[in-house]
Amino acid sequence: MTMSGIASPPPRHRRRKQSGWRGLLYIAPAMALVGVFFILPVLFTIWMSLHKWPLLGKPAWIGFGNYVRIVSDARFLTALGFTAHYTIIVTIAIFAVAFPLAIFVEKQRPLVSAYRTIIFLPVVVGLASASLLWVWLANVDSGLFAPRMQRLGLTSSRINLLADFDTAFLTIIVMVVWKIAGFTMIILLTGLQAIPAELTEAARIDGARRWQRFRYLTLPLMRRTMALALILSVTGSILAFDQFYIMTSGGPQNRMISVVYYIFNQSFVSFNLGYGAALSIALLAILVAISIFQLWLLKVGDERP
């Protein structure tokens, strides 16, 4: 693969010092926002995680006690396992739906902007509102699916979709794909549109078939875009909470407790803010590690595109 057609930028050695200060000035507002709304809260969370910090009453310093507890916390490990399971399935599902959609709406065809808008619409619905909407859709008595399936004769009686793990999980996956796929589609669409038409045409003249063009041209050129979409999707899925909290309250027999749900429960149901903070820091570390791994896997940041 020798696609490198972009010339490297001219050296800017002399100007670097001066523009360095100006650059800092330009990013100062953004840095201030990040400092106040990200770095300070993280530091405070770390501080809290070193305490036994009840929601009511006085905190007490316990050093790394909370972190020691994490290692042997079976329920946290279960939550991690469920979150991983969910993340893998939902990410595959989102890409399986979003990629064909992106290819579909990329080509100029009649009504293409109408299709794009329709597919993108669920994205602008808040996740909590979407969850509530689907709670109603999946309601066994007054909803849409169960009574409709019974009337069509697909099921002999009304099935309570949210009462059984498999059907409830499936409902949530379908809801999340419906909600998120449009967003992933837009990201992938920008990647597709960034591929120069000449390249595809040249490949076609060289006799590459449709699948070969996709496999050896489109996919490699979309690596950065896919990395972005993948990281957004994986991060979002690992932080999933609303849908489980609203749609199943943790699922039949607690089988849908995601990591964030567990942190929420520890902090605001059991009132162990300190332990919740420690879990949050552990989750942050896991997320950073996964993101670095993904960037490495997709070789984003290398000089070659």
Binding site: V140, A163, T248
Partner: peptide, 9 residues
């Protein structure tokens, strides 16, 4: 018992 009972929180 109505089926909705199984998921009524």
């Amino acid at each position: 018992v109505p089926a909705g009972s199984a998921s009524d929180n």
